[in-house]
Write a protein that binds this DNA or RNA. Sequence first.
DNA 1: GTAAAATTTGACCGAACGGTCAGTAAAATT
DNA 2: AATTTTACTGACCGTTCGGTCAAATTTTAC
Lengths: 190, 190
Amino acid sequence: MRKEVKDNETKTKIINAARKLFSEKGFDGVSMEDIAQASGVRKSLIYYYFPSKEVLFEEIWINVIDELENDIFSEIEGESNITRVIKKLIKKYIEFVMNKSEISKLIARERMNVLDGDNQMGNAKLKYVGLMKKIENVFEKGKQEDVLNDIEPSAATEMISAVDSIHKKSVLKNIEEFLMRVILKEKVEH
Amino acid sequence: MRKEVKDNETKTKIINAARKLFSEKGFDGVSMEDIAQASGVRKSLIYYYFPSKEVLFEEIWINVIDELENDIFSEIEGESNITRVIKKLIKKYIEFVMNKSEISKLIARERMNVLDGDNQMGNAKLKYVGLMKKIENVFEKGKQEDVLNDIEPSAATEMISAVDSIHKKSVLKNIEEFLMRVILKEKVEH
DNA sequence: GTAAAATTTGACCGAACGGTCAGTAAAATT
DNA sequence: AATTTTACTGACCGTTCGGTCAAATTTTAC
């Protein structure tokens, strides 16, 4: 029992330090020595737990996309009314960007590399594309039930996903209303 | 006369090669040797023309933000009808992202570093912030003339600027209509 | 308590990085 | 034509990079 906790502790320290640094400076802007110092361990210890920088990054990426996915879909899971589902999805995505800026910055920074890069990080790409597909499926359902306001599900998905690039976080609540108003046929009340 | 052309030619080759590479891999992901090889010159010759990697990047950044600004504002310059101004602004921004993907990818990749980084690249930040302010002023004018649809000028500006992060370019025309429809009170005709 | 397993460390590696500088060739100036 | 200036080169620099590995230390299993 005590060993279990200790094992996770070092690996977790490394992951958390790396996540913060990747979020601040991007994958290429952070060295393994930077991560080691921020974790309070030696660089070679990182290689004990992770075979390479890429594998460390990929694990972090998959964790953060998981976290985003869980934040959104755990909220909309029991809901059957598609309009309400879409509202909750938009709301949760914006809240995520507002409240978990470390993660949303990491996604904003590294999305392009993950999507356009070589096949080295194929699992990272699959994870991200999988989540986007899942979100798009919600909009497809909205389209089928005729609650969408003449926007393609893929366009709605891309608009949502671009929100993490917005620099001025103070406008995010305004943008949330904006998105709901435009995506949904139903008039939005406050 | 002949010298003038030749001077510009080498420097221009370096700038163009660097721009392309920075757009593909980001500032930190590209080495000066990469740029040298892509330019067909020696690395030390880059240092003959530019004192550092940062200065090279800054010049490129300022050029691309200039180009974006010119594309947008040269189109709306003679227009006095604010609704038409806003429509043209949105249209030109989307067209820029669609047609000049090297530049829009560069902006998407490096915006966060430029805005959040240290003061080393203060001119790059000033340039970008200046353009965003200029765009926001257009929306402010729209607000004053009551053609905006209950969206804050700063939120509209941020939505527009996030468009360069959109990965799936095929949806951009749909998003253009989307943005016009929701930003402007007037109903949009095709 | 002891041996084995797991974790951690320090020293090291070759390659890559941003950058420097003396020398040379070409172009421009006198 | 001689001299000066400009453009370019190759070799080099110290530092940093991702990564390796034997040894030391700590933890676990019995």
